[in-house]
Amino acid sequence: MKKVKKKRRLLGRDTLAAIGFLSPSLVGLAIFVVGPIIGAATISLFDWEILTPPKFVGFANYVAIWDELANGKVLRQVFANTLYFTAGTVPLAMAVSLGIALLLNRKLFGVAAFRVIYFLPTVTSIVALSIIWRLMYNPDYGLINRALEMIHLPGPGWLADPHWAMPAIIIMSVWTGIGYNSILYLAGMQGIASSYYDAAQVDGANAWQQFRHVTWPLLSPTTLFIFTMSIISGFQVFTQIFMMTSGKPTPETQVYVYHIYSQAFTSFRMGYASALACVLFVIILSITLIQLSITKRWVHYG
């Protein structure tokens, strides 16, 4: 009897302490994350252009989004552009980063210096990187077309050319992400116990076989993580588009978040833009849930 009483008292003291330790984060998350997500869902049910009072329209904004997607208006193009960007960046960035990480993992002399160099774009503001690359891509004075000129190749108009604008942004984005992704891959590789490689060598496995049967399967959690995160950030691309093309040549580089931004903060269609944002949320949530279920099913843990 006495013991039970004491236990209950202890539990009570912990609860009080827990309230104290948790309240700052709880209040912050409630006001700045949970509140706004409920807010976004609510606003998406209204027709609201800031200056006029909001008018309840039910799911009309979502119907409009569906209609635009189905009937090939701007939004469909925006969606296609976002997919184009994501499909262009993710596999390329992942393949290059994996290759770099494999080379860095050879523990050569001077590897630390390479790591620092590759990491430079990660610590530099994308705004500055966008300005640098806008100059690199300049059709008349840019370094890229000057270099192409030297080997007598015609340089495209890059960011001003409807066909080349998106590839140009993809190249720049892959370049930006190499350091970051290869550091993640490298961390994954260093987590693989060397006994696996010793065993493979005893069995006479060559470099390719070691990669194929040891590194690649044991790296699958890292690969899946980078893959999911890259797709999610592909859907969220904004800064380099805003800085380098502002969606021009319209609508070749208009992407989803840019569209949300311009609908909300230049056209002031708060309700419609919120509906777009909620659709983005559902997309990203689905990607995350798929990743979680795949992780449970087929990823090998070493």
């Binding site: 006001i31 700045f32 807010g39 606003i43 833009a273 944002a277």
Partner: peptide
């Protein structure tokens, strides 16, 4: 994602 809460946060 941050972009989803952007509009309500701005209004806040």
């Amino acid at each position: 994602p941050q972009q989803v809460t952007l509009i309500p946060l701005f209004l806040l």
